[in-house]
Nucleic acid binder design. Structure first.
Lengths: 206, 206
DNA sequence: CCTACCGATCGGTAGG
DNA sequence: CCTACCGATCGGTAGG
C-alpha cells in the first residue's frame, strides 16, 4: 500500500496499545519498535523520547474530551439537556477509546513534573465544565444538589469506570451505557435528598 | 519504645505508602528499606519478595472491602437500607484508606498471573455482592433498573473515584461524601427512566 | 542486619 | 534504519 512509511501517529498508536496492556514502565522502546516493525533505537527517528510519547497520548486524550464537552455545551438547551449531552459524550469516549482513557487515568504519576501539571490542568478544566453546567441547573432550580463539586466528581468517576469494564462484544452497547448513565446523572441531580440522618444506613438500626 | 523491632506489617505499610506515591515499579527495595530504616537487602529478612508485598496489600484490601459489605448485608432491613449501608461502607473505605484503594485499582496489571486472577476473583465477588442487593430490590419492585450489572458498576466506580480526590482537610467530610453518594445511589435505583430515545441528549436538537 | 556483587534490563547515543 | 554499546538501575543472593 502507498504511504506505508512510518509516521509519529503510527508509533503513538502502537505505544498506546502497549501502555494500556502492560503499563508505561513495563513497556520498552524495543517493544514499541517491534510493534511497528523496527528496532528500538530506530524509534528515535520518529519520536524524541518515551516520555514524549506518553505526554502526547495524554494531552491528546484530554483535548478530545474537552472538545466533546464544549460541543455539548454549545448545542444549547436547558440545563438537563446540556448535562445529558455532556454525560453521554463522556461515556461514549470512555467506551470507544478505552485504551486512551485507561492510560490517561493510570499513568499520570509517570508524567515528569512539568508535563504532569499540564495534564492535571486540562483535567481540572474538564471537570469544571461539567461542574459549571450543574451549577447553572442548580441556580435555575432544576437541580437540587448540595455540592456541585461532589455531583460532578460522582458523575465523572462513574463514566471513567466504563473504560475498565466495557467490552464491545459485551452485554451492553455503547448507546445503552451512555443513555443509562445519563439517566443516572439526571436522577442524582433531580432527586429529593433525604432531610436528616435518621434514615441513613449506618446507624438507623441501632 | 518497647517492641520497636520490625515486623512484616510495618514493612507493608511503608511499601503501601511508596507504591501509592510513586507506583509499584518505580518503588525500589532500597526505597522501602530506607522508609523503615534498613538497607534494601535486609528487607528479605521480613518479606519474601517485592511482588509478595504487593499481593498481600491487595488481598488484604479486598478482604476488608468484602467484610464491610457482608456486615452491611447481614444487618438486614429493606433493599434500600441494605444498598445504603453498602454504598456508605464502600465510600468510607475509599475515603479512609485512599492509598490501599488507589494501589488496589492501579497496580492490578503488575500482579503476576497467578496472583492477579486471585485478586480479580475477589473483586468480582465484591461487585456481585452489591449486584445481588440491587437485584433483590428490583425483584421486590422497590428499584427500577434495566440492568443490575450496569447499576452496580456505576455505583461502585463512583465510590472508587473518591480515593483519587478525597482529602481529609478538604471541603467535604467522610460522612458528607458517604451520605451524599448513598443518596445518589438510591436516586439512580429509584428514578423513573425515560421511556424512549426522543428526549436523549445526543440527537434531540437535530 | 550489612557490604559486595551478580545477572539482567533499559533508555538513549554513536556512528555508520 | 541498523548494530554496538554506554551508563545507570534494579531485584535478589552470598556470605558473613
Amino acid at each position: 500500500m502507498a504511504g506505508s512509511s512510518l509516521d509519529a501517529t503510527t508509533v503513538r498508536d502502537a505505544a498506546l496499545k502497549l501502555f494500556a496492556e502492560r503499563g508505561y514502565r513495563a513497556t520498552t522502546m524495543t517493544d514499541i519498535g517491534a510493534a511497528v516493525g523496527i528496532r528500538g533505537p530506530s524509534l528515535y527517528r520518529h519520536v524524541s523520547s518515551k516520555q514524549d510519547l506518553l505526554v502526547s497520548i495524554m494531552v491528546e486524550t484530554m483535548r478530545e474530551l474537552i472538545a466533546g464537552q464544549r460541543t455539548a455545551a454549545a448545542a444549547g438547551g436547558d440545563p438537563a439537556q446540556v448535562v445529558r449531552r455532556m454525560v453521554e459524550a463522556h461515556v461514549r469516549f470512555h467506551a470507544a477509546h478505552r485504551e486512551q482513557a485507561f492510560v490517561g487515568n493510570r499513568e499520570i504519576d509517570n508524567l515528569e513534573p512539568p508535563n504532569r501539571e499540564c495534564v492535571l490542568r486540562l483535567r481540572r478544566r474538564y471537570a469544571d465544565g461539567l461542574r459549571a453546567a450543574i451549577a447553572t441547573g442548580r441556580d435555575a432550580s432544576v437541580f437540587k444538589v448540595a455540592s456541585d463539586r461532589l455531583a460532578a466528581y460522582a458523575i465523572l468517576d462513574m463514566g471513567i469506570g466504563v473504560a475498565t469494564w466495557f467490552r464491545a462484544d459485551g452485554p451492553s452497547s455503547v448507546d445503552e451505557v451512555a443513555y443509562t448513565y445519563a439517566d443516572y446523572a439526571l436522577a442524582m441531580l433531580t432527586a429529593e435528598t433525604s432531610p436528616g440522618t435518621a434514615q441513613r444506613g449506618g446507624t438507623a438500626a441501632l
